[in-house]
């Protein structure tokens, strides 16, 4: 693991099921995450993914790559273009810094509207430092 290493991209089909299941699994009952009509009244064209689901997908992307021994230390994300049903999000990641057994990975999730999420994930790999 070295700074500059790129993680293989992960393609996430943004289905209506994923948006609704993610919202309910995170106990987020805001109407914009499950009710298209109410979402439209709030200026959105359709329901959109909640931030907790995005946060979970960013974490999953990093632990999928580094394996079950990887320990997430920090996840910091900022949302941009929303994830609406029918879109696809492509997660890409680059190792930005490595200090001992800990790496900072920059993650970007792009969808059909632009950049859905940018963030950094700090992850410790117990075996890498041993």
């Amino acid at each position: 693991m070295r700074a500059g290493d790129r993680l293989p991209p992960l393609r996430i089909p943004v289905t209506r099921t994923l948006i609704v299941a993610g919202a309910l699994a995170s106990r987020d009952f805001q109407d914009v995450h499950h009710d298209p009509e109410l979402a439209r009244r709030k200026g959105a064209p359709d329901i959109f993914m909640n931030i907790l689901t995005t946060n979970g997908l960013v974490g999953r992307y990093v632990t999928d790559h580094f394996g079950p021994a990887a320990v997430l230390r920090k996840v910091a994300i900022r949302l941009g273009a929303p994830n609406h049903p029918g879109d696809t999000m492509l997660l890409t990641g680059t190792v930005e810094e490595v200090a001992g057994d800990t790496a900072v990975v920059r993650v970007v999730g792009a969808n059909g509207l632009g950049t859905h999420v940018t963030g950094t994930v700090t992850v410790t790999l117990p075996e890498a430092g041993a």
């Binding site: 309910l24 995170s26 907790l52 979970g56 974490g59 999953r60």
Partner: peptide
Amino acid sequence: WCEALGDTNPAYTGPDAIAPPTMLQT
């Protein structure tokens, strides 16, 4: 949560399971 997000990390199942850290706010 893991089913919704398609997360199959074995750290989140079994007798020594931890919660997915990103699930914090839930």
